[in-house]
Design a protein around this nucleic acid. Structure first.
Lengths: 215, 215
DNA sequence: CCTACCGATCGGTAGG
DNA sequence: CCTACCGATCGGTAGG
């Protein structure tokens, strides 16, 4: 920690940080949710963990929901970036689609607090997703990758958005089950295990469960 | 709900049920979660809605988690029953598998409070699923239906539990996205729309996204 | 099943 | 960014 605050003046009281209380509040929120669950999230506890009094957060966030919005927005940006990274390593539309889904699932495993906030039932206001093509448009990546597969003839015909929705359901379901620890009965708990499972499941979606002649 | 709040503390208090407070508490919990979200659930508010004082629920549930366990257990039983009903109407393993998934998604839409409690991050104690083959073993239905499809040759080879996990991810993802209203951007809000989507997605999983010669 | 009460926490604001 | 304070709600228990 000790964000190496660019202190300008003042005496050196234990007065805590700050270069970036806003960042510290976000981090405190994330670890709090990860450790104690979403129900434990309160602005007061977040302030406590960030080392400030409970009135301080209001300098940075109008209310609890504003803080959550910031977490969600950051989550979408990071998730979209991870998806792009993994897709860039692949050389066929099918593989890119799989990589995209794998990145989604791994993001859930590695950033469970972000994931819960992004897709939880919180938020009274609109979910405010970024613009299509923007650095938070994860769904757009899915759609594009499917449309590309259709152009090359590797993927079946059909409305790309519909197909993308199906991919999304699959990886969102796997991610959710992992984050909420519903797959422990099957022995899947670690990140590598989750990744292997994600590859298998996305492959199955692409190939189908049906018996095929050439398979 | 007959709260008639202006009534004084006379002998004609509405005094409420006696018949089945446990049931009334469960129902109050479900409507509370549906209406206000899980975060609004408190034993005191539940008691309030059931028309009793906040100490009364402890006669029926040791604590908040015990109440949630009862909700979850009921949810698994109802969901499993719905799955069986829909599967019974179909005549091929593939169709039965699809019907099973559709039932899962419709259960989520029609019983969002149950769904959230069943699969949410609550519960400090083990999730306590019913025994395999029991009236709460929804996952067992999936596995069996896939194993059957493999026997008839309609479905591809592979570990049935692995294939079932993939089906589960798909419908769990779709159900979760619907319950948490993340598909409104695509215009899917009603139960019939959700059902149509569920049929499409389960069909896609069975057939696969890949381009096939005979399709 | 109720009244009465406990300690604790919460979101939010006043005012500096 | 802090101190001090507000009203409200919470889970849980004592005791009848």
């Amino acid at each position: 920690m000790a964000t190496r605050g660019t202190r300008k003046k003042t005496a050196d009281k234990p007065h805590y940080h700050h270069g970036d209380l806003r960042r510290a509040l976000l981090d405190a929120s994330l670890t709090l949710i990860s450790e104690e669950g979403f129900g434990a999230l309160s602005l007061r506890e977040v302030a406590r963990r960030a080392g400030v009094t409970h009135a301080a957060p209001y300098r940075h966030f109008a209310d609890k929901e504003a803080l959550l919005e910031a977490v969600a927005e950051e989550g979408f940006r990071v998730m979209t970036a991870r998806m792009k990274e993994r897709m860039a390593r692949e050389s066929t539309p099918n593989r890119r689609l799989m990589a995209c889904g794998v990145a989604y699932v791994l993001f859930a495993m590695e950033h469970p607090a972000h994931f819960r906030v992004m897709f939880g039932p919180h938020f009274t206001r609109p979910p405010k997703l970024g613009p299509p093509g923007g650095d938070t448009d994860a769904f757009g990546l899915l759609v594009d990758s499917i449309a590309e597969g259709q152009r090359t003839g590797e993927m079946r015909e059909g409305e790309p958005r519909m197909l993308a929705l199906t991919c999304w359901s699959l990886v969102h379901g796997l991610g959710s089950l992992l984050v909420d620890r519903k797959l422990e009965f099957s022995g899947v708990t670690t990140v590598p295990q989750a990744e292997a499972l994600a590859w298998e499941q996305t492959r199955l979606l692409i190939q189908g469960l049906e018996r095929t002649t050439g398979n």
